[in-house]
Nucleic acid binder design. Sequence first.
DNA 1: ACGTTATAGTTACATGTGAAACTAATTGCA
DNA 2: TGCAATTAGTTTCACATGTAACTATAACGT
Lengths: 157, 157
Amino acid sequence: MSNPRNPAPAGAEHAPLELEHFLPYRLSILSNTVSQAIADDYQRRYDLSVTEWRVMAVLARFHGLSAREVAERTLMDKVAVSRALARLVSAGRVHRDTHDGDKRRSVLSLTEAGWLIHDDVAPMARAREREVLEKLDQEERQWLTRILDKLQPVSQK
Amino acid sequence: MSNPRNPAPAGAEHAPLELEHFLPYRLSILSNTVSQAIADDYQRRYDLSVTEWRVMAVLARFHGLSAREVAERTLMDKVAVSRALARLVSAGRVHRDTHDGDKRRSVLSLTEAGWLIHDDVAPMARAREREVLEKLDQEERQWLTRILDKLQPVSQK
DNA sequence: ACGTTATAGTTACATGTGAAACTAATTGCA
DNA sequence: TGCAATTAGTTTCACATGTAACTATAACGT
């Protein structure tokens, strides 16, 4: 009916999608490639998942957050945060207190061990990001930022 | 020790990562948002996963591919393709033959039912992509394409 | 021809992830 | 007060996904 490994006949009434030019597909491939490259660095070395690293990153910036606030800042859902925190706390990387006036809330912070990991991983992550961005010239980098800003959903307040 | 929900003191020696400006993080969020928006359309309606849809999309374009060739074209691994095909075949959306000269290889094509779904989903996906791209002006769209081309890994030959 | 090696595809296992149900604490309001 | 409705966080379940092991067939080198 039609020949293997060749595109469908031009007159075809089906208008198939060309994945390699389809934005969502391209974004997905790119995102996975980039994230994986970075995660490989610390994943094995510290047995640290991407979600855990994100939690650590926000706790490095904002002290005393609750789990819900971490979820807001990372745009992860609360279940993911809860699980990441469980592992981080039991690994001694995050300290969990209970909020004074509200016993439901946790008050989170990096432990000494958490900081050590953070201070090793953060520069590594930045270096990897730099490697990716080096493929672009200055002008392209500026456009990329601008484009991401316009496409990005709300971003956390 | 430090006040909740405020950034760490400026003199802090830890140089925390600002996730919201970190390229891999932004890509991941954007990719998930965009893919999800599109997938929602057909996911429920046809009980069709993203991987399944990608397989269908390449089979719409290239007739008689083997599973391995589908994997190459979608950049998915062969296990994912195998599983997607199992579902698609059992749902009567893809027809699987055995290659004449090589009994290991499959020869895949969309069935009539598969084509019907494809012809409904493909325009829908394109429309959603258009909605996303409408947030950008013409110049930005051109830069985006150029940037993706430069950042993109190898792309399938 | 024949044993080794490579390839196509599937299965099994371990792990990750999201939705919904659940517990505990707090808030709102009659 | 006291009871219903919210909120913080965890647990459970179903399902997706990746790695490695496995089966069947084919290709290669002698």
